[in-house]
Design a protein around this nucleic acid. Structure first.
Lengths: 358, 358
DNA sequence: TTGAAAGCGCTAACAG
DNA sequence: CTGTTAGCGCTTTCAA
């Protein structure tokens, strides 16, 4: 049986060993610039060293120090979009001497609420949130507790809170324009439940883009797979949703020219289903994704997609959060990221001549 | 300008409003079963409600309560193996009323050390560690601080600490046996730097398996790609490493029958490089992965691999951790997970007859 | 059944 | 320059 839990040295122990008061000990140990005689200073440092002294955070925190943790809520950690985003957040936090804490909500409103309570409880210095459910109250509670927050990923249109938004409407429009521009006419919009604000905007933009491209877009062009069992939006769930979408598409009387999927993992699921059914992408049908997840580049054919840079989003969100956290700025900022097309191999260019008839 | 940070109600406020002492207030608010007159109890609860009282964790923690957080250190969050593993950990922690905190070390020994210090600093209730660098001291510091830990993913052979190990040696052997058994003779072992304990064992097992399969394994069958710039083991890094590996293989005078990659992301990189060079998997060459990452199932061809179940690993690790955390068990446990082959589409079965000669 | 008070470890205001 | 002390919010003796 090993020696049990030897008690940690406190500042009092250090002070004792160095024959000074705890006040002086505190002054040098907390790195204050308060003047202390060199002699004592080194004695204290030596004692601290010998005792392997480390300040008790809870003492400091109770005293009023700020908890240098940043709470981050995302729907799913296994979805590469969010893990890449988190990597960026981590980097920025690190540089600022903070440490991010990740909460995965599985897109469950209760969990989101639970984690927000948690963060208030631990008095984190700031929060980064991707919230599915959202009532104005949620962020207010954080603000009341003096915790700055910035929303990302899901647009919520609240002037009272900072956010880094992605222009989903333009994204949808760009998708439609690119696809029609490439000569496709019969284009399908493939998605899971259109429950999130992001998807609603994407769809609206897509419809607008189709019209601009001179294509009709009716009920029959909207392919929805509702059969996602349980809540949660893991990579696997989206992929499976995509597989289901692929099936639905295969069951149609005729294949569309192209399909636009609401995110990359779904697009990958669709491609997989098509390929294993002998339909080749992009020769038989084109598939366009959305997100620009790293994985998209790794598959064959490499996924053509619309980039909502996960890394950039995380970086920006963290940066504007720190403006509030460290500078105590009360200013609410709204940043809008524009979509960028990433052309790879999953969409075929039909080199369409000038649209003349049909 | 919005109302600023109204101070949170303390137990004193609640006691005041309910006209009781803070002692009695504490007794009911902390859910103790200490007897308190019903009348006062409800008055206190009502006051707490009205003031939106929430206990200050730091007070409780300073007082000696345990911090119900679990620290988890992994090399990379964007690698699906670890994000899946973490999902399992999260689930188990949740059920126990704890919350996991994720640290991504980028396989950097200094970071690992840094995060361990962090966890000691925050006096987490327990830790789950995948450590690249490892000296006996690392866990001892945790144990001294009274923080139980369990190692996973990287074997370290220390009887003083619990671990859930994967049998990498058997894994390597299984890989070689399967590949030779499928009729392949010229088989290559593809890897990044053989720096981690896990890879060394894998290689040793592979060599043994090759011998058992009656195949020679010499220098020329070991393909190493050292050109991984910087530290870190993100999914992307491994993938790129795989691409490099693919290139090396393509440059050889003749193509091997099969290649065994040290992890799935590398295998995917290899496949991608081969496919884009007109070499088809598995008709021209077979590729076997290792890890059984979800993503392997999503590509075409679906990746045949050896399963080191990320989810199961995380689940087990968390479970044996909680035996120490909640039951205060001092027992050190060593669990060993055996490899399982997951047959999909990236390895071709040559239907070899009984090995007779050669 | 209730309350007063000590003390967890730390920092800062104040007094020497 | 150094030390004494109050107090952050909480739980838990100990005394009433």
């Amino acid at each position: 049986m090993v020696e049990r839990k030897k008690k940690k040295a406190t500042i009092k122990d250090v002070a004792g060993m160095a024959h000074v008061s705890i006040a002086t000990a505190s002054r040098v140990l907390s790195g204050s610039d308060y003047p202390v005689k060199e002699e004592l200073k080194s004695a204290i440092l030596a004692a601290a060293q010998k005792l392997d002294y480390q300040p008790n955070v809870f003492g400091q925190l109770l005293r009023g120090a700020t908890n240098k943790q940043i709470g981050v809520v995302v729907p799913s950690i296994s979805n590469p979009f969010y893990s890449q985003l988190f990597a960026a957040v981590q980097k920025v936090c690190m540089d600022q001497g903070y440490v991010p804490i990740l909460y995965s909500s599985h897109s469950d409103r209760n969990m989101e609420q639970h984690y927000i309570d948690m963060m208030i409880h631990y008095r984190v210095a700031g929060t980064l949130l991707s919230l599915m459910g959202w009532e104005p109250g949620m962020c207010r509670r954080l603000e009341e507790a003096g915790i700055p927050c910035v929303l990302f990923d899901q647009p919520h249109e609240d002037p009272e809170v900072s956010s880094i938004d992605f222009d989903f409407y333009s994204g949808g429009k760009l998708a439609a324009e690119y696809l029609t521009g490439a000569g496709h006419r019969e284009i399908v919009f493939a998605t899971g439940s259109v429950d999130r604000p992001s998807r609603k905007k994407l769809l609206a933009g897509f419809q607008a883009g189709m019209e601009l491209g001179g294509c009709s877009f009716g009920e029959e062009h909207l392919v929805v797979n509702h059969t996602v069992k349980g809540t949660g939006a893991s990579a696997m769930k989206d992929y499976q949703c995509g597989q289901g979408l692929g099936e639905i598409i295969l069951e149609r009387p005729y294949l569309p020219d192209a399909v636009f999927a609401v995110n990359d993992m779904m697009a990958i699921g669709i491609i997989k289903k098509l390929e294993t059914s002998g339909i080749h992408v992009p020769v038989d049908i084109s598939v366009l994704g959305f997100d620009n997840v790293e994985f998209g580049e790794m598959i064959v054919p490499a996924l053509t997609t619309i980039s909502q840079s996960a890394y950039r989003t995380g970086e920006l969100a963290a940066e504007i959060l720190f403006e509030s956290v460290t500078e105590g700025s009360r200013m609410k900022k709204k940043l809008m990221l524009e979509p960028v097309l990433v052309e790879r191999d999953s969409v075929r260019r039909k080199h369409n001549k000038i649209r003349r008839n049909q």
